[in-house]
């Protein structure tokens, strides 16, 4: 068995939210390793801690205890600015909603992250059009988000997430606001990127049809991982 490099590792991770006197144990000891090339579905009932875990894997939050290591860097050692830099350089994000900057066109939204990374103007334009083209969005390149359907917006968000060539793309319920057809299209887009470019995805979902696309399914219940299965066949 060849050992693939890990892009993300969680060890004994807990997360406690305090709301005044109320304490919520969102995560209770998570051990999880994401390998390069994984296509992971994170499933579990509402409130089981999926978003909380994705935020930790996305360097958007810090664990209460335990350690998260992202592309070789220990999260607890990083400050706010360093985490931002890590996100910009190594991670891609697809959110459930409010993914795109409303005043930028589809192509400009894709370029936005590249520009933050310091990619030159001509190069980032070319790469944005390339990725949009690959996802069948070439004709929509110059439209603003409000001129796109929900499904198109999410696919543009995926294009943006992968255009910066991240080590890991995190998507928290990316299909939650989409109908079945659009959800299917989005998953196929992600699958193409995974299969052809080896992009590593971790996404959460409630939808069994979306789960069906995953090559690995991690189940969370009550802040704990109850199962972690790999499937060779999809």
């Amino acid at each position: 068995m060849t050992s693939k490099p890990y892009v993300a590792v969680a060890e004994g991770v807990t997360k406690v939210f305090k709301n005044g006197k109320l304490e919520v144990q969102a995560l209770r000891g998570i051990d999880l390793s994401i390998e390069a090339g994984d296509f992971v579905a994170l499933v579990g009932p509402s409130g089981s801690g999926k978003t909380t875990l994705l935020n930790l894997l996305g360097a958007l939050d810090q664990p209460t205890s335990g350690e998260v290591e992202l592309v070789g860097q220990r999260l607890t050692k990083l400050g706010k600015a360093q985490r931002a830099k890590l996100r910009l350089g190594s991670l891609g994000f697809v959110f459930q909603a409010y993914n795109l900057v409303p005043v930028l066109t589809a192509a400009e939204n894709v370029e936005f992250v590249l520009e933050l990374q310091g990619v030159g103007k001509a190069q980032r334009r070319a790469r944005a059009l390339e990725v949009l083209g690959e996802l069948g969005l070439a004709e929509l390149a110059d439209r603003r988000p409000n001129e796109l359907s929900g499904g198109q917006q999410q696919r543009v968000a995926v294009a943006r997430a992968v255009a910066s060539r991240p080590k890991l793309v995190l998507a928290d319920e990316p299909t939650a606001n989409l109908d079945t057809d659009n959800a299917e299209q989005l998953m196929q887009a992600m699958e193409t990127l995974h299969d052809e470019h080896g992009v590593t995805f971790v996404f959460s979902t409630h939808d069994p049809r979306v789960v069906a696309h995953a090559s690995r399914v991690v189940r969370l219940v009550d802040g704990k991982i109850t199962s972690d299965e790999r499937r060779e066949e999809r």
Binding site: G58, A84, L91, F93, V101, V113
Partner: peptide, 16 residues
């Protein structure tokens, strides 16, 4: 607010 949160999530610097 949400849009700003999104930009910050992507790694936009506060200065920008």
């Amino acid at each position: 607010r949400r849009e700003i949160g999104m930009m910050l999530s992507l790694g936009t610097t506060p200065g920008r």
